[in-house]
Write a protein that binds this DNA or RNA. Structure first.
Lengths: 231, 231
DNA sequence: GACTCGAATTATGAATTCAGAATTCAATCC
DNA sequence: GGATTGAATTCTGAATTCATAATTCGAGTC
């Protein structure tokens, strides 16, 4: 989420971001990377020492992350990394899917030919990863494709909103729990997505992306439920 | 029995919100009510005196609002109330419309009969306001209907996301610039919405709400552009 | 032996203080 | 007269300090 916006007039040349924003970015990474796990208590002093800053900017950073829904702040009782219930996770899915849908619609209208070509190349590499059974590679490329579509939609509001909602699902999305059949289906969907984009068929691409995301997320939720049951 | 027992999960019962959060709420209201206008510079000291707090919680509050996109924070140069360009505004519309769409879909599935009845009553009152030519009343009831649908969708993530995006459009939505013909159309749409909800027809209600919101926002943007041209 | 009460400790919340950057404005120079 | 420089002022950024709430831990009690 954008805290330090570009200076509207003459773009800030050497305006470095506020310390609080840097700390927020660093802390967000710790959470997204999984170093700080859901439910974990955040110790202010520990982090001030780690980042080498005082409590003031750290606390401002925590306010930012709380606004993003990444951490929970309980008055007088400190902060914990947000742990989303399955219900909340399930609620986030259709929201994220709808956002991906608009991204698709707008990308079909606004993408440059170069962007479309790049997404086509990425899709080919995605297919190669599937054939090779390379799951880490698949996830990486998959991520890139979705990021490319979001970028091609040229919608800052959408990008910000997507980042916020996606952040709230953080851990769940990294769980590499794809069945072979779901993997094949996802790949086929990706190829249809690339086709619709190449044809600039907005009416098709939107729902396609929405349903693709919905299917993916449903799979994640299913796997998560299974996993939780065996914990 | 024991009152002193730690209350980890169901916190917030008697814990008053942090001062920074209260200040953020107050400041958000000032902006949404239009008392602080777009582009206006925010003077820290002025607000600390107004709210009777020190700069620390105020600055934390500003970080929150910046994360919400309501104000712009420029390092070493202070804060201004965010002024969105027409392009950014136009970008926010499909995002908001998509969110309304999901709200409709889920409301159709999850609303209680009482909620549906209430929305039906509100729609009837909306019709009365149209007949009476009561624009303020129309806007007020219209607002209530959309809030009721959002609430009926029982999706916290959606509600939060919607609030954030809606906040970024704040001023624009309050412009009461409805042509008579658009007004009639909007009313007809509302009646179809109420019908679809009563029938719990999710497949219809979602697109209905999405398109309704899109039409409304397009009208706002058009009026805004006319107005700007004559400024 | 478990529970309760309460002092000591620790962590959080907010104000204040200190440091540094940006803005203002007057004096100077071209 | 207009532009420019630089000191004074004002504002923002961040650290520190002070206040207060929560937690911990041990003594005492039933």
């Amino acid at each position: 989420m954008n805290v330090d916006r570009p200076v509207p007039e003459q773009a800030g040349l050497l305006a470095r971001p506020a310390l609080a924003v840097q700390v927020a970015d660093a802390l967000r990474n710790l959470i997204l990377e999984g170093e700080l796990k859901g439910g974990e208590k955040i110790r202010e002093i520990e982090l001030t020492e780690r980042f080498g800053v005082s409590r003031t900017p750290l606390r401002e950073a925590m306010k930012i992350l709380a606004a993003e829904g990444l951490i929970d702040l309980i008055p007088n009782r400190g902060a914990t990394v947000a742990r989303r219930s399955d219900a909340e996770l399930a609620d986030a899915f259709p929201v994220l899917a709808a956002l991906e849908g608009i991204a698709g619609t707008q990308a079909a209208e606004r993408a440059t030919d170069a962007e479309i070509a790049e997404i086509g190349r990425l899709t080919a590499r995605l297919r190669a990863a599937v054939e090779a059974g390379d799951r880490p590679g698949y996830f990486e490329i998959n991520q890139q494709i979705h990021a490319a579509i979001l970028a091609a939609s040229r919608n800052e509001v959408l990008a910000r909103t997507h980042a916020t909602v996606a952040g709230q699902i953080h851990r769940a999305r990294y769980q590499a729990n794809l069945t072979r059949s779901r993997w094949e289906k996802a790949m086929a969907e990706h190829e249809r997505i690339a086709e619709a984009l190449a044809a600039r068929d907005a009416a098709t691409l939107g729902p396609l992306l929405r349903d693709h995301m919905m299917a993916k997320l449903t799979a994640i939720l299913g796997a998560r439920r299974d996993k939780t049951a065996t914990d």
